[in-house]
Nucleic acid binder design. Structure first.
Lengths: 119, 119
DNA sequence: TAAGTATATGCTCATATGGGAATATGTCAA
DNA sequence: TTGACATATTCCCATATGAGCATATACTTA
């Protein structure tokens, strides 16, 4: 079974640096039309449109026709599951205690490894 | 310029569901060797090894030789930049106030687009 | 209606991916 | 040593991607 259709989920959509750039831009400056994004991100128009297409498909942005231009607006709520997923790991670098525990485990394993075998 | 080598960064590494599963497992149960992961995740051994390879390359896990098996251990700190990036969007779904503000910005921008310059 | 502007799409190309199967490598046990 | 186990790597294949270019679409304005 080859790779699954990727750009169909938020994690993959956001894995593309330029798509993150687009989201950043929309978050910072509010709704923007395509040409404006093209100018601020220094990308070709088709490239921007395609990335916006991916973001739209996963619901991270929505577009409203505004004459012949299209206003894209951030729909950040779709990032929530991702935020929740990463947040589950927050404790690993936040709490001193966990850091210590983790290091201790590390040492134990290293110690074990050192003595069980000779490499 | 075709696509950039992807699995070279954390965002991409984590875009793969099975790789997230591996990280989840390591986070929940602590260090694990490959066969154990193979069994709990119901994936083939080569598949697991390959995914671990990607995770290792981006620093999300580290391995210590433990006899003929290899103990993989989570290195969640690498997720921090990602956590920080997503967190910047947290306000969009957390605070009622921001939600309202966002809509207001949206309207303002729409208004501007309609009335200001023609590109 | 005919240009002109703003966006979206289609096509092609080079490359990345992930899985499966087979195999290499390294390690332990008898 | 030899054979069993644990893990990594290689090869092949089908498919996904992203970029550039050209073109289709839509709306707007002269």
């Amino acid at each position: 079974m080859p790779r699954a259709p990727t750009t169909a989920d938020v994690f993959n959509a956001v894995a593309e640096p330029r798509r993150r750039a687009i989201l950043d831009e929309l978050a910072r400056r509010g709704p923007r039309d395509v040409s404006r994004l093209v100018r601020s991100l220094h990308l070709s128009q088709p490239t921007v449109s395609k990335h916006l297409g991916v973001l739209r498909r996963v619901g991270l942005v929505s577009a409203t026709a505004e004459g012949r231009r299209r206003l894209y607006r951030l729909n950040a709520a779709q990032l929530r599951p991702m935020h929740e997923w990463v947040s589950r790991f927050e404790r690993f670098w936040t709490h001193q205690l966990d850091r210590i525990k983790q290091r201790a485990e590390g040492r134990a394993a290293a110690h074990r490894a050192e003595h069980t075998t000779r490499n």
